[in-house]
Design a protein around this nucleic acid. Structure first.
Lengths: 106, 106
DNA sequence: TTTTTTAATTACTTTTCGTAACCTAAATAC
DNA sequence: GTATTTAGGTTACGAAAAGTAATTAAAAAA
């Protein structure tokens, strides 16, 4: 039997996208960053169940993916600003559509 | 200081949506089910790195969420059909937007 | 001098995930 | 008539990811 059409063929880019968004907290972090540039503690306050350890780890990943930019503010104590890159801002339809789906339920 | 506007207030429905989609494999499984009703092994063949153990677990979760329906086909050996509910089909914009974002990259 | 602040890191525990073996019950092969 | 294959699981076990809590830096404030 010949396979002529593979509707959901495994494209590496698509797989990778689902990998990023398939990690715990990533979606909620990005959702918060959609509204504004945030400091580390602002994100934590917005998502109380997210631990500092996990936030550090996710932000490192998102920075490495080119989705967020990390800026050190040279005050004492030091502060960090996280903001979305263009690539990150392009995720807005994803975040929006998840929110819209969520609002439909029940 | 008074907080008058909470742009990304933690709504339980939205949190829950991100929880479902923030699990490994869920996105790719749903993506495949968007194209057609599938048997267990069809999904596994489509996503080779996904183990049977994980597929069973995810499908149970998605069924419990009311996102997919599991139908037993009484042949021997027994076959199972998985298809999306309305709630599941409403996730199409989410899956589409992730795919579209992925295609933009690099 | 002690406490506070911000953004991490480290050690340790609990969940989740991956791998491989096994199960059922009928159909087919040898 | 024993052995193998099939579909869709389950189970046991080890590895990886995530949660919890204590600790760090360096300077400012109490």
């Amino acid at each position: 039997m010949e396979e002529t059409l593979i509707p959901t063929a495994l494209c590496p880019r698509v797989e990778h996208a689902f990998e990023i968004l398939g990690k715990k907290w990533t979606g909620l972090i990005l959702r918060h960053l959609m509204t504004k540039t945030c400091r580390f503690n602002e994100i934590q306050d917005a998502i109380p169940e997210l631990s500092g350890r996990m936030l550090t780890e996710r932000m490192k990943e998102l920075e490495a993916e080119g989705i967020v930019i990390r800026t050190v503010i040279p005050e004492r104590p030091i502060k960090i600003q996280y903001s979305l890159t263009d690539k990150g801002r392009q995720l807005e339809p994803v975040i929006r559509s998840i929110e819209e789906w969520a609002e439909l339920q029940d």
